[in-house]
């Protein structure tokens, strides 16, 4: 609970001013300041929004900065808002004992993003799951097939315009 009481920092400027020494921020700024679109520090969790085309390089950058463990990746469907899809990557540092969230926002039409499996092979199943349930494609993924639903299934069940019950 202690962490949650820390002040919220919203917006890139505020986060950069409030936590200039954060290793992930330092690494991303040293690599490519333009790739960092937005930032937010809320409830003790740091969220960095990066440009969709640079997610793989951003992942490699934070990995080099000590965030060595890919913990989780999933998508959020913000239908009917735009941009519709959000990808959230949760990355843990075994050395710093801290987690960061990389966030990517994608438009509704043909959502696709570079796969991070070259950086962390463990993202394989997670990206397949997002492809299966949200219909977001991952370029360069070694085996982008449905993982939960049958191969011949139509539609992507975790999208908000997919009904919870009844006929599709």
């Amino acid at each position: 609970m202690g962490e949650a009481n820390q002040a919220t920092l919203s917006g890139k400027a505020e986060v950069l001013a409030g936590m200039p020494d954060h290793p992930a921020i330092v690494a991303i700024l040293a690599w490519q300041p333009d790739a960092l679109l937005d930032a937010r520090f809320d409830r003790g969790e740091l969220t960095l929004t990066v440009a969709p085309e640079s997610i793989r390089d951003a992942a490699a950058t934070v990995q080099a900065a000590g965030y060595n463990f890919f913990e989780d990746m999933t998508a959020v469907d913000w239908f009917p808002s735009a941009p519709r899809f959000q990808l959230s990557y949760h990355i843990l540092s075994h050395r710093l004992l801290e987690r960061i969230r990389l966030r990517v926002l994608l438009d509704e039409a043909g959502p696709a993003v570079e796969s991070i499996t070259p950086v962390w092979p463990g993202a394989d199943y997670y990206e397949r799951e997002v492809f299966d349930l949200f219909g977001i494609r991952f370029e360069g993924h070694p085996n982008l097939r449905r993982i939960m639903m049958p191969d011949e299934w139509q539609g992507h069940p975790l999208r908000k315009d997919y009904p919870v019950e009844g006929y599709r």
Binding site: E45, D72, T74, V76, S88, H90, R99, R101
Partner: peptide
């Protein structure tokens, strides 16, 4: 949005909960 990780018998469990301010979660991963 919050991510909470704990250690269960098999390894690290994590719940990613996204709220839009209503009484039902927008997304639970």
């Amino acid at each position: 949005e919050v991510y909470q990780g704990i250690e269960c018998g098999h390894g690290q469990v994590g719940y990613y909960v996204v709220s839009d301010g209503t009484a039902k979660p927008w997304r639970v991963h």
